[in-house]
Write a protein that binds this DNA or RNA. Structure first.
Lengths: 113, 113
DNA sequence: TTGACATACAACCGATCGGTTGTATGTTGG
DNA sequence: CCAACATACAACCGATCGGTTGTATGTCAA
């Protein structure tokens, strides 16, 4: 819940809030792809795709390694899991509310209060 | 993977890509809050908070019910889980890659190919 | 009834977003 | 060496974002 954590959450959710970037994630989680290979899949300029890849990289959702003149991108499943864990945190808050409600009901129906 | 699904994913991730909205989600998952009560918690105008609530509502992450002159917002944990399941889908793609790699290794090391 | 409160929404503004084109820098193969 | 390829990045543009103020509407309480 620190400032840094919030910045990271901002970057992660923002990066995933675009269908082209989500599609890129699917591809790079399935296997390594060069930026050019990815760019060929979409009806937009190379530069646009390169910027999408850069957004995902800055968010930590993918990493690149150089291979000759190509940059091979691969998805980071740990980063994906870290987003999932943020949602689990949210769900845990909800569980806390349910637990409180359950306790309230239990204490109301207990013979001795 | 339909257009509608992608639109929903866009809306969900976008809604969560703002720290004020994530904070609102924490509060409304913990219990019902009126828009005014929520607005009082943040250093911004009532209208700004009301718009944040509207973004979350349109994404389906919270619902409102009228109680007198107040609108009580409550978080929808199912919507939160639906986001989590999108991430599970991504992770499954990655698992598929790992499985393919494992199979490759296994067939390489098998005595009979 | 009326005044205060709760909400919604429109109009506006600077900043960021997602796209473009153009240019610069590496890298490789012949 | 050099021509083609792969990448990066800057500058620009229209659209959307996150905020503001102002206004309209509905509801409650005295």
């Amino acid at each position: 819940m620190t400032e840094t954590d919030e910045n990271r959450a901002d970057a992660l959710f923002h990066a995933l809030a675009d269908r082209t970037r989500r599609d890129i994630m699917r591809r790079v989680l399935a296997g390594e792809h060069s930026v050019s290979t990815l760019a060929a899949k979409y009806d937009m300029s190379f530069a646009a795709v390169q910027k999408h890849v850069a957004v995902l990289e800055k968010a930590g959702l993918l990493t690149k390694r150089r291979s000759g003149r190509e940059q091979l991108a691969r998805g980071d499943v740990e980063a994906v899991r870290s987003v999932a864990s943020l949602l689990v945190d949210l769900e845990q808050i909800w569980r806390g509310r349910i637990a409180r409600i359950d306790n309230l009901i239990a204490s109301d129906t207990e013979p001795e209060g």
